[in-house]
């Protein structure tokens, strides 16, 4: 018989493998939307979460803020990925990753370019290889880029679920009604976000997004997205402005939206003034990263820059 103290080596191999997430009862890997909806609807009282890229959910699980019983991995569902035109509207599958959005030809200029602007600078390249547009919208973190860029354009979200009889229900929710507040959305726990649909843009529309953080790759202290339409003279006829990084999460900056029509890219001074005034109309927090006044200055600076970029993209429609 062996005697004496157990060696450190023996101890270490007897120990359970160190794992940070709390126990998960099952990991499902469906390959069709139907299988996903079935898994979400037949949770049997267990906390069942769909995992998209997992770039936020895995952090939450490893810190045990989130302790799902069942995980439904969406990464093998091909029909949830991809970008396609449908009658002039652009449909982006919810599992389309940042890396794919960043290089999508459909998003490099014009009405939807804010999405690629945002995707190009999310996290780092390892994160962009996993993180998805749908995951970001459903997580709706206070300092996320995709929700803000989306608010600037105004897409519709396609959500599906399965009722008790097994019938698939689909509903469309406008982005403004979907994003309810920090980490809250209109998605029910048994619903799957299938796609984000950007309606056929008006002629001469452009959008842009930019974030500012303490270093280039960090989460935004302030992020601003602007989407606008101009007339033949380059005058703004309508605008949507999204702002993120604030205590109330991603939101519209309506005071700026009301003030932009009638202006052109020639009036940079007036644009800067209207963003500073608009920054006074939203709740802006002070923290260790930036004071309230500094955040308001950032809203002015970035808002002006992003608006001019959106004007440039919109007026290209005139030049074509």
């Amino acid at each position: 018989m062996k005697s004496g103290p157990t060696s450190h080596f023996e101890l270490s191999i007897q120990m359970e493998t160190p794992m940070y997430p709390a126990p998960i009862e099952s990991l499902l890997s469906p390959t069709t939307v139907d299988e996903v909806l079935r898994a979400l609807s037949e949770s049997g009282g267990k906390e069942t979460l769909a995992i998209a890229g997992g770039m936020s959910l895995m952090q939450a699980m490893k810190s045990r803020l989130s302790r799902p019983d069942t995980l439904v991995d969406l990464n093998n569902v091909a029909e949830l990925r991809g970008i396609s035109w449908q009658d002039g509207a652009l449909r982006i599958g919810a599992m389309t990753r940042y890396v794919d959005l960043a290089r999508a030809p459909e998003l490099q200029d014009g009405a939807f370019a804010a999405i690629a602007d945002a995707a190009r600078n999310v996290g780092d390249r390892q994160v962009r290889n996993r993180g998805t547009i749908g995951g970001s919208l459903c997580w709706n973190y206070v300092a996320a880029c995709i929700p803000v860029a989306s608010l600037a354009i105004g897409p519709t979200l396609i959500l599906s679920s399965r009722d008790l009889a097994g019938k698939v229900q689909t509903r469309s929710v406008a982005i403004d009604e979907f994003l309810l507040g920090p980490m809250q959305t209109a998605r029910d726990s048994d619903e799957l976000l299938q796609a984000i649909v950007f309606a056929k843009p008006e002629e001469c529309s452009g959008s842009a997004y930019r974030k500012w953080g303490v270093s280039a790759a960090t989460l935004p202290i302030v992020g601003i997205g602007v989407g606008l339409t101009v007339d033949r003279g380059g005058i703004c006829t309508s605008a949507r402005v999204g702002v993120g990084g604030l205590v109330n999460g991603s939101q519209r900056l309506q005071a700026a939206e009301r003030a932009l029509p009638g202006l052109s890219a020639e009036s940079a001074g007036a644009i800067a003034d209207l963003f500073l005034a608009a920054a006074q109309t939203v709740e802006v927090q002070s923290d260790s990263w930036a004071t309230t006044d500094y955040r308001r200055l950032l809203i002015q600076e970035i808002g002006t820059e992003v608006t001019l970029k959106a004007f440039d993209r919109a007026t290209k429609g005139n030049r074509r």
Partner: peptide, 13 residues
């Protein structure tokens, strides 16, 4: 063939 962080995935994935 794409760089990912292996601490942010589950083995079963």
């Amino acid at each position: 063939d794409e760089a990912v962080k292996s601490c942010m995935l589950l083995a079963g994935q």
